[in-house]
Amino acid sequence: MRLASYILSRLLQMIPVLIGITIFAFLFIQLLPGDPIQTMLGGKASPEAIEAAHQKFGLDQPLPIQYLLFLRNALQGDLGTSITQRTLVSGLIAERFVPSIFLLIYAMIIAMLLALPLSLIAARRSDRLVDHTIRISGMITISMPAFWLGLLLILLFGLTLDLFPISGWGDDFLGHIHSLFLPAVVIGLATAPVLIQSLRSSLLDTMQMDFIEAARAKGLNPNRIMIRHVLRNALIPMVTVLAVNVGWLIGGSVVVENVFSIPGIGRLLVQAVLTRDYPTIQALTLVFGILVLIVNLITDLTYAVVDPRVTYQ
């Protein structure tokens, strides 16, 4: 019951931000120099098409009305027509969405697989050589430009050793896993240090707690204490760290999708910018903003479900 009202209040909180995102996407076309219709229809548009667009977007109406029309169209799934591809933007995004989400989840899993054992080691041997080595390695991987590391991995594992494909995302599930491995590693390596840093410090905090002292006094195996007692409690803040960094993850995936020619929304965005396909850019602005909002919502809800101490306010 209280959970339900928490979810409701959380959804209500999203509304002003959602309105802000749509206003920004709407203003995007308005802010461009030149006539918005020319911008949306591209260079060569027939007089009939221009007239129809004037009607549809209500360009003779004041701006607030235009915004409401834009909202109505967007809610009906009409995000305009791509100038370069000559198809509906909504369809274009729908087909590009899956590879991007697949890559994001894959990268997150790799980052977690790196972060869990390394942060456990770093916390158990804090301020020793291993701990310092892990931290310095993190500083190095986080400073690597994603496209540089991508090119390096393509050169080494793709072109020289021929172990992984250097572009595309494969045909079936195993193909996806195989093709997206290098891209996911690039994003994972950039994300893992942030996770390690926060997990290490929350592990160290948890190790100071009384109940851990109690478990030690009972004579439990130290490794068992570390995994069953310390890690389980330290993992909760990690959910938030992952969510805070989702923007960073998505940024990484935009770069990596372009390096590895993965047909995702990040590649679509850059191509649209380079070809001045403004309706597509506008729609993607909306999609990326809403994507981050949804991830944050899911995180907060997971947090509330996982940790019964969270008060729903």
Binding site: V17, G20, I21, F28, G251, V254, T285
Partner: peptide, 13 residues
Amino acid sequence: ITIAFPFLVIIIV
């Protein structure tokens, strides 16, 4: 509203 957009995406836009 600003942080709802991934940093790289808003810069590109």
